[in-house]
Structures are given as structure tokens and as C-alpha cells.
């Protein structure tokens, strides 16, 4: 029996017309990086969304462990002074 490799998964990041940074939009299956770019173009830029595409092998991503969310994220909940909501913004600055 011939061993068939499962088609690798790629994470897709698109820089939109308006945004500055690439944003994660989803994932595609493709045999290699070149076809992953094509698949990302065909799947995620059908309505003129993008100016630039990145694809990254999903296996290259190191993710945090959801079980550790307590120690990772909860300590910030009590540090509301980190939110920039304690400043008076001068009127000349306008909308930020």
C-alpha cells in the first residue's frame, strides 16, 4: 500500500488595503509554500481584500497551552492602570 502524506496545513496572513499589519485570516491545505500562496489567494482574497499574503506552515507555530491561561493571563486583570484611559487628551490631538 502506498503511503500518502496528508496535505500540510498553512496559516494565512493578509495585509488589507487599509491595515498596516498582516492579519491572520484562516488556513489552507497545500502541498508546498508556492501552492499555499495560490490557495490563500483563491480562498481569502476573492473580494479584493488583500495587497499582500503570507503563508506559514501551521507546524511552525508554537502555541501557548490553554491550561496555563490562569498563570499567563489572569495576573493582568488587576492592573487596570496599564490601560491608557487615565489621560486627558488635548482637544488639538483629535480622534485617536
Amino acid at each position: 500500500m502506498m503511503a500518502e502524506q496528508p496535505m500540510p496545513l498553512w496559516e494565512v496572513f493578509i495585509r488589507s488595503r487599509t491595515g498596516l499589519a498582516h492579519r491572520h485570516v484562516g488556513s489552507v491545505h497545500a502541498p508546498d509554500a508556492g501552492l499555499a500562496l495560490d490557495a490563500a489567494r483563491d480562498t481569502y482574497t476573492r473580494r479584493g481584500e488583500g495587497l499582500s499574503i503570507w503563508v506559514v506552515p501551521s507546524s511552525a507555530i508554537t502555541a501557548s497551552d490553554p491550561a496555563e491561561k490562569g498563570s499567563l493571563f489572569e495576573p493582568t486583570a488587576s492592573k487596570i492602570y496599564r490601560h491608557p484611559s487615565f489621560y486627558d487628551i488635548p482637544e488639538e490631538v483629535g480622534h485617536m
Binding site: 496535505m7 491545505h29 495560490d38 490557495a39 483563491d42
Partner: peptide
């Protein structure tokens, strides 16, 4: 054969 190609071919 796969969703990605379904979209690509119909594109």
C-alpha cells in the same frame, strides 16, 4: 479533490 481547488477552479 480539495476545498482549496474547488475555489481555485471555479475562480
Amino acid at each position: 479533490p480539495m476545498l482549496e481547488e474547488d475555489l481555485a477552479l471555479t475562480n
